[in-house]
Nucleic acid binder design. Structure first.
Length: 430
RNA sequence: UCCCCGGUAGCUCAAUGGUAGAGCAUUCGGCUGUUAACCGAAGGGUUGCAAGUUCGAGUCUUGCCCGGGGAGCCA
């Protein structure tokens, strides 16, 4: 039996395989709390009624692994409403008394917990977050598949920068050659989109920037769709549909975990299409009205994003940024050439940009010009230019940052809690 | 890279420049309905490192190390 399903086993004799989460001793009564990965369940053992089980559990150390059998019964005094009347106990491994489990049932510092991330993930809160992450991923892939997008995974080793702006992790690649860890699958997706029409990739992404904030990891997961013959409006709609489906699926299938996190789900319930859309021009105007020093041509930082997103109860889409502050491959707005047909989707409650994307340049000559303006090595981009030589079409896509999205859904203070083993500047252990 | 904050027992934290403490954890004892159980007792310290000021430094000064938050950049 799993603890998750305890309610269906009321009155039955069951076996639970897991770990001792906590033990309360009250004279001749023991109240062990078991953990099996799906939840927590209190047990009860009386010395008088079951001396063997009592002796096996008495003094047992936190996180010792145990297999216990007993009868499930409804018990309002037990957390979760059900209790296991333990009859048999097998200790699989006893945590030594002279080297006790380091993570106690109390507050710990961030540094201590991150150094023991391999153990920290056993705590109910962390386990709930990881289960929500898994559901968010499942829902995201389900949505993309249902929309007819084909999963085409892109390489992790790349020969050169995708965007040329951010710092890459350089690795030795066989003999003398250097390679870089990908910072985006986008350029490759443009190729697979021309082959298959509607495509996406989902995998790890690496940024060697020395960002030290609660919104940054050096290794994070990104879902990137790309579609041939698609335009800016199509991608804004796809993005809001994707995010809404992820949020609604977690609300539906991981309600218990959101409860564990004490997440205020009223702030998520209304996350459904359409999302508000504002232009960059309007965004700057709004910021200035609120006394923010932003002026036209500036990119937005955390403060600006928070002001903009705080006006809405769901993510807000900001579109048509100045071309100068966007990536080299962004298609200019035919109505106003100084604008790029790009958009960002900003999560509420200060979680920042969760989606960035737009329409790509389809014209060969314009793309070459942009490569040169950005001092990018043309040789490395020949294959990419081929896509404009042979049957170029308008196309668009975006990238969704998984961890930022999950952090927002969970309401966690730090993005590092929503990935099993966070990789940050100055932290690659464990 | 820059700005700000922090580092004292295994953990979380106290300690006017004047004998380094508490709670939790561990060990021992008590308790038949506990809820991070509770009650009693015990053991546990190179105060991040190195210099300096001082009769005296956890506390003041300088440098370094480690970590955190933020800026820039981004998802």
């Amino acid at each position: 039996m799993t603890i998750e399903s305890a309610g269906q086993h009321e009155g039955a004799e069951v076996t639970l395989r897991g770990w001792l989460y906590n033990l309360r001793e009250s004279g001749k009564l023991l109240f062990p709390i078991f953990r099996d990965g799906t939840g927590l369940m209190q047990g009860v053992v009386s010395q008088k009624e079951n001396p063997a089980a009592f002796e096996a559990l008495r003094g047992l150390t936190q996180e010792s692994s145990v297999i216990v059998s007993g009868r499930v019964r409804a018990e309002p005094r037990a957390p979760g409403g059900y209790e296991l009347a333990v009859s048999e106990v097998e200790v699989v491994q006893r945590v030594p008394e002279n080297d006790p489990y380091p993570i106690q049932l109390k507050e710990h510092g961030v540094d201590f917990l991150l150094d023991r991330r391999h153990l920290w993930i056993r705590t109910p809160r962390q386990a709930a977050i990881l289960r929500i992450r898994a559901e968010a991923i499942r829902a995201a892939r389900e949505y993309m598949d249902d929309q007819g997008y084909i999963l085409t995974d892109t390489p992790i080793f790349t020969p050169a920068a995708c965007e040329g702006t951010t710092t890459l992790f350089e690795v030795q690649y066989i003999d003398e050659q250097k390679a870089y860890l990908t910072q985006s699958g986008q350029l490759y997706l443009e190729a697979t989109a021309a082959a298959l029409g509607k495509v996406y990739c989902f995998g790890p992404t690496f940024r060697a920037e020395k960002s030290k904030t609660r919104r940054h990891l050096t290794e994070f997961w990104m879902l990137e769709p790309e579609a041939a013959y698609a335009h800016l409006e199509d991608m804004m709609a796809l993005g809001e549909g994707l995010v809404s489906h992820m949020v609604q699926s977690v609300l539906k299938n991981r309600a218990r975990e959101l409860e564990t996190l004490k997440r205020d789900t009223s702030k998520l319930a209304g996350v459904k299409p359409p999302f508000p859309r504002i232009t960059y021009d309007e965004a700057v105007e709004t910021l200035q009205k609120r006394g923010n020093p932003a002026k036209w041509g500036d990119d937005f930082g955390g403060d600006e994003e928070t002001i903009l997103s705080s006006q809405f109860d769901r993510p807000v889409i900001v579109h048509r940024y100045p071309a100068a502050i966007k990536a080299f491959y962004m298609q200019p707005d035919p109505e106003r050439r100084e604008l790029a047909l790009g958009f960002d989707t900003l999560a509420p409650e200060g979680y920042g940009e969760i989606i960035g994307g737009g329409e790509r340049i389809a014209d060969y000559d314009l793309l070459v010009r942009r490569l040169r303006e950005n001092n990018l090595p043309e040789e490395a981009f020949q294959w990419y230019l081929d896509l404009r030589r042979y049957g170029s079409v308008p196309h668009a896509g975006f990238g969704l940052g998984l961890e930022r999205t999950v952090a927002w859904i969970c309401g966690t203070e730090h993005i590092r809690e929503v990935i099993p083993f966070p990789r940050m500047i100055y932290r690659v252990y464990p």
